[in-house]
Amino acid sequence: MATLQTTDGDTGLGKSKWDRVQEMDEFRLLILAKKEFVVPTTVFFIVYYFALPVLVGYAPGFMSRKVFGAVNIAYLFALSQFFVAWGIAFMYVRVARKFDMYGAHILETLKREGYDENQNGKRGL
């Protein structure tokens, strides 16, 4: 690759690869798509999880109610946490395929424009 590595991440094309990606539409879309999934999902799992200690702690009578046989609400709610966590993980894996596609597309565009992906800045690491 005939690019000149001057300073930190500057490829000699006038603009660093970081700035170039920052201004790409795909990059904005990627960040937006991630936020749209990660923020509400994180809020949901935190609320759902803390509902368990709060209910167990402050409404033990309700939680001790038997549902079938000796099995009570408290145990079923605790068990449901495992399946909810797995469910969220699988949903995330599905949604993240889209993130990977955006990412691959961004790197491709960058390469086409003559930036060298493997040139790292000198600082930081």
Partner: peptide
């Protein structure tokens, strides 16, 4: 550097 980090963290660039 945050802007670089944002690009890097989200795309794996570099």
């Amino acid at each position: 550097r945050f802007e670089e980090l944002e690009v890097r963290a989200n795309t794996g660039l570099g």
